[in-house]
């Protein structure tokens, strides 16, 4: 028996909206520590890693480990039927072929349930080591969204370089070139409006803007986003989802042929 209840159901709606265009399907792995997902996009250059902790839910029960194969487009269709203020409960029997989603309005006068058909999905788990990065940059998620959106209108790839001067995003295309530099800035009173640059060594890597732009669909989940960069390694774009957990996007760098 698996059961997970979250009062702030809109978080689940936002999570699925953030993932569904990158990955069409994947396994929700549930255990007594929580719910996780690892899924790659069809070209295998980007990976979504979602971790929701058991204690972040208002109620969580999982009697045995299960992998529930989810089609995210279908899950999104069902979650669109939930109100933004609804409490959402996920339920499945052991070895079930469906996941039940129950939506309760705050006034308790409307309760609905939907069954999502589960799929059998062969998925490859990657071992992602904990490691120190050359540069870690925390910035407002709205700022990240703006940068990648603006640069996507100019070019296809972005060179991200972190130095002691700041973090610079550069692109070029048919219309010309663009450079946006952010400096370490802890002046704003609100922590979520600050930019923190933790630099161990300068690093510069090139990435496809299409993916970085797609990751910014997670903006509604968190006021800040963390970018982690190390030479010759995928970038990590991480959104902390309150006390519930995090969603991380990994993207392989563009390298010279």
């Amino acid at each position: 028996m698996f059961e997970a209840r979250i009062t702030q159901g809109s978080v689940l709606k936002k999570l699925v909206e953030a993932l569904k265009e990158l990955v069409t399907e994947g396994n929700f792995d549930v255990s007594n520590t929580g719910l996780s997902l690892q899924a790659m996009d069809s070209s295998h250059v980007c990976l979504v890693s979602l971790t929701l902790r058991e204690d972040g839910f208002d109620h969580f029960r999982c009697d045995r480990n299960m992998a529930m194969g989810i089609h995210f487009g279908n899950l999104s269709k069902i979650l669109k039927c939930a109100g933004n203020e609804d409490t959402i409960t996920l339920k499945a029997e052991d070895n079930a072929d469906q996941l039940t989603l129950m939506f309760e309005a705050p006034s308790q006068d409307r309760i609905s349930d939907f069954d999502l058909k589960l799929m059998s999905i062969e998925s490859e788990h990657l071992g992602i080591p904990d490691q120190d990065y050359s540069a870690e940059v925390k910035l407002p998620s709205s700022e990240y969204q703006r940068i990648v959106r603006d640069l996507t209108s100019i070019g296809d790839t972005v060179l991200i370089s972190a130095t002691k001067e700041g973090i610079k995003f550069s692109t070029s295309g048919d219309v010309g070139t663009a450079n946006i530099t952010l400096r370490h800035n802890t002046t704003p009173e609100k922590p979520e409006e600050q930019t923190f640059i933790d630099l161990k060594e300068p690093v510069a890597l090139t990435f496809a803007l299409r993916y970085l732009n797609n990751f910014s669909k997670a903006t509604p989940l968190a006021p800040q986003v963390k970018l982690s960069l190390t030479k010759d390694l995928p970038i990590v774009v991480e959104y902390q989802v309150g006390e519930l957990g995090s969603v991380r996007f990994y993207l392989a760098p563009k390298i010279d042929d």
Binding site: M40, S43, H44, V45, C46, L47, E124, H125, L126, G127, I128, P129, T157, T206, A208, L233, P234, Y250, A252, P253, K254, I255, D256, D257
Partner: peptide, 13 residues
């Protein structure tokens, strides 16, 4: 330029 698949960076667990 090209991209290597993520499996080139992270081993299968």
């Amino acid at each position: 330029m090209h991209q290597e698949p993520l499996t080139a960076y992270f081993p299968s667990a």
